[in-house]
């Protein structure tokens, strides 16, 4: 199977690889997948005072398409509000990366990862509100 130019680009020059401080109040972490299935994605977002995503980082264990999907997503979410990031659909990733049908699950995983990161952040913030009351 040949890889699309877009997948190769992200695979060879992955954007935003790294780790944010998991414990920080303005950082949300989403880890999805399982080693036994061959893909694990960890996606992290950091929001500013206005709730806009100012930084995003990922690390992915998985095939080239999984790495490319998570790399692309970190690019897309930067500068978006949580609501906008929440609205990203896996089909948009499929389209942008020209993923073949067998790789659609990689894009689904990426969508799950951003949703999990947002949920984590929202839980943290709800806890904060709760604690400060």
């Amino acid at each position: 199977m040949a890889y699309s130019k877009q997948v190769l680009d992200h695979y060879e020059n992955p954007r935003n690889v790294g780790t944010l401080d998991t414990d920080a109040a303005n950082v949300g972490t989403g880890m999805v997948g399982a080693p036994a299935c061959g893909d694990v994605m960890r996606l992290q977002i950091q929001v500013d005072q206005q709730g806009v995503i100012e930084d995003a980082r990922f690390k992915t264990y998985g095939c080239g398409s999984a790495i490319a999907s998570s790399s692309l997503l970190t690019e897309w979410v930067k500068g978006k509000t949580l609501e906008q990031a929440q609205a990203i659909k896996n089909t948009e990733i499929v389209e942008e990366l020209a993923l073949p049908p067998v790789k659609i699950h990689c894009s689904v995983l990426a969508e799950d990862a951003i949703k999990a990161a947002i949920t984590d952040l929202q839980n943290k913030q709800a806890d904060d509100v709760h604690h400060s009351e």
Partner: peptide, 23 residues
Amino acid sequence: ELSPLWDMYKAGIDLKSVQWAAH
């Protein structure tokens, strides 16, 4: 360097103890 599992292994986390969301 790209692998979250490698990070966890290096941090001494037993991957078998993690509750993975299988898909």
